[in-house]
Amino acid sequence: MKMTKIYEGAHQWVMFGRDENKPDNIIDSNQYIVRTANKCLLLEPGGTELFAPMMAAVLHHAPVEQITDLFASHQDPDVISSLGLWDQALSNAKLHAPALWEGYIRHFGCESVEYVPIPDNGETIKIESVELQIIPAHYLHSPCGFHVYDPVAKILMCGSVGSAFEAPNSPVFVERFDVHVEKMRYYHQRMMPSNQAKRAWIDKVRNLDIDILAPQHGRMFKGDDVKRFLDWFDSLQVGTGI
């Protein structure tokens, strides 16, 4: 599992992905942690198959007992089907996930982890002194989804938005946006069902101060590529993939 520190300040952000031992027939996904002095928030914990390498990777940054919070942007198995395993490994953790999907996500196994439902209009999660804004991203692609914005690190974990599928050893950041566009086009046309939802999200996100856009699949966007992505996404007609 590749680990890349993407923010280092009073707290840290680490991106995990590109697992070399991942079975070929499951899609690659990015996981993130927000690490504070005594706590660790795991964003998009991933599928069951990724649990062991992901846990092992997190142990480079935090002990098990300090993994206190999990976040799932939506209900898909590549996002959170490992929940049943985290549930048995963590003795005192909360899962922040959409209220709409609670009854669905619990199918993955959620007995000891406390499910904290996120209302449709979002909320704020506090991990020690770090305040993270939970931004609604409904119909992008899930009918109920959320992204995580850290105003201090200036990182937006943008779930499925900005996703692309890459070869296992690809770099973690976009290097040539014009080349990367073709890796994203079909996914966004096919997976994102609503131009209206897309426009509302872009309007909201343009008001945020963002250094890094961190999607759940593929490469992250930084610097000018953030604006390039928003412009490209704005001009793309979605819901047209078939």
Binding site: A56, A57, V64, Q88
Partner: peptide
């Protein structure tokens, strides 16, 4: 779960907090 935990423990060899997986 036990098998996955053991697998995670082995993969974490050398990690700073690997020991915390023992419990």
């Amino acid at each position: 779960a036990y098998n996955r935990f053991e697998q995670a423990g082995k993969l974490a060899t050398g990690a700073r907090y690997a020991d915390s997986m023992q419990e």
